[in-house]
Write a protein that binds this DNA or RNA. Structure first.
Lengths: 153, 153
DNA sequence: TGACATTCGTTCGCTACCTATCAATTATCG
DNA sequence: CGATAATTGATAGGTAGCGAACGAATGTCA
């Protein structure tokens, strides 16, 4: 047993949580390394991806889809606007909302970006589909348990 | 299927990678909320935890145990030193190394901190042990696959 | 021994999360 | 209608992570 096993707790349950973190961090590291030549962060890529796929989107809606707090997305959008990849325009109906869309430069960059499918394939491609389903179910249940723990407070 | 599919939450919510992130974030949120009254971050807690359990530790070793880069741990240690919870002293044999230990205030705070095992219990307590084992195995394999992807570059 | 390489901790600059708060806007309800 | 509540986006301040680069200390090897 390694020291990190003891760190995360003596039982197997804790190990799942620790591996969830490691897996997330490792995935992000690969994504960041792939996008570094393009001066793009992983979450910035998700924003471009969504806008390229779904077209102009109200900022709040995008935040809900990417599961980011308003403040988090606000900062990322500011960065992308500064890079002239995303435009933030007023929406006619609700003056509070901002409509996000790709600029021409954003469109152009999106065309040049490599396909990131290989990341997911490398990570999970060799796994038994049934095991993947089980892992997803365990993680989903844990997430919901934890979130309901926060609500209760 | 890429990470992007998972983020959109379209219908493929069986995506393990996305749930790994959600699970990690949710766990950290509960931990942060629990530790907020004590003005402690989650990783700061891990540092105190290890020092309370294992006694004085060379900084680099602690970094390896907690799987943190030197730069990351350096910042966290600085914060804990500023709060007078951790002391950073010179080690006799190697003048490069710093020996970390709990200060009296650090010991005192540690005694007052609540038990955090309820978090893992709430998250994974209701799951089938076999499923937990499967989830851990899937995540571990994915992590190793991703890390070897980084080495190759 | 001396030259070179490695290691440790720090610092810098960055991404990406969060909470709390604020101004502006819109929604709701008496 | 008007007062109050809720929502949007921005900002401030904090935590957590990374890579790159640097000085000091240590290891290695010709």
């Amino acid at each position: 047993m390694t020291e990190s096993d003891t760190m995360t707790g003596a039982d197997e349950d804790a190990a799942v949580g620790a591996w969830a973190k490691r897996c997330y961090m490792a995935g992000r590291a690969v994504m960041d390394a792939t996008l570094r030549p393009f001066d793009l962060g992983s979450t910035q890529w998700y924003v471009l991806w969504h806008l390229a796929q779904s077209g102009p989107t109200v900022q709040r809606d995008l935040g809900r889809k990417l599961e980011l707090e308003r403040a988090t997305l606000s900062g990322i959008v500011t960065t992308l606007v500064r890079k002239d990849l995303v435009a933030q325009s007023a929406d006619g109906t609700d003056q509070r909302q901002r409509l996000l869309s790709l600029t021409p430069a954003g469109h152009a960059l999106w065309q040049e970006l490599p396909d990131l499918t290989f990341i997911h394939d490398a990570a999970f491609g060799g796994a038994d589909p049934a095991d993947l389903e089980t892992a997803a179910r365990v993680l989903r249940a844990a997430t919901e348990n934890l979130q309901s723990l926060l609500k209760k407070d």
